[in-house]
Design a protein around this nucleic acid. Sequence first.
DNA 1: GCCAGATACGGGCATATGCCCGCAATGAGC
DNA 2: GCTCATTGCGGGCATATGCCCGTATCTGGC
Lengths: 123, 123
Amino acid sequence: MRKTNRKLAALYDAALAPHGINIAQFALLRNIERRQPVSLTELARLLELDRSTMGRNIRVLQKQDLVLTSRGTDQREAAVSLTERGMTVLRAAEPAWEGSQDAITARIGADRIRILQELNQLL
Amino acid sequence: MRKTNRKLAALYDAALAPHGINIAQFALLRNIERRQPVSLTELARLLELDRSTMGRNIRVLQKQDLVLTSRGTDQREAAVSLTERGMTVLRAAEPAWEGSQDAITARIGADRIRILQELNQLL
DNA sequence: GCCAGATACGGGCATATGCCCGCAATGAGC
DNA sequence: GCTCATTGCGGGCATATGCCCGTATCTGGC
């Protein structure tokens, strides 16, 4: 599973590289878009990551001017949103992501993809 | 896949924690045992990892006195072998690993496990 | 035997990931 | 209103991962 995950990530990363992001960042940007403005804790819950990991990942996106964070009503919360550039990059990267998705589906079969999705539910 | 991989790794890591190693290190130790003495490049090939990553992972095991490296016939090569302690820890950790393996198989089904193994071949 | 290209490593740079600890803001109970 | 447990973050520590570049060693063709 670890091997496969690395290979799969490498495939997506190669396809997304021209857009300056990797698969982890792509997934993160999509989640931000859906929920913005959203807190770090909420994003961490959505992607099932440690909160501190999420904080650092967001910082990288911020450095690239893809997201911005401000304080929420709750002064503790960091409210994360896409910047205009973030939205542009996300839109531009989507075809590359879909292309990889299709290529991988063709290679391993839609039924196996479905099983991978089930797997995550079971754990 | 990335989510599932993290969850799965966490399960194994928890089971292996009492032995002071994680799932990546466990897999690495097993491969070293099978091929020792073995070069970094060969190990990297076996586990499909970047060679520099392998070098660093080995260094961690070395720091814990689980493996030792010496120069091979080819003076460039690092010949990696298990230390006695490495062997002991590997043997001690195996039941924990098998326990996780069984628990996970029970949870997600042997057929899905088999599909995961096929997946790696296809990529 | 000598040199050029190939091969094995190590180190630097960047990201990803988790755990723990401490700080600040919130909110519930009195 | 005030105290204290809860919640949201950031920073420190450690590992994992990949890419690129430089150095050392080897090897094949001459």
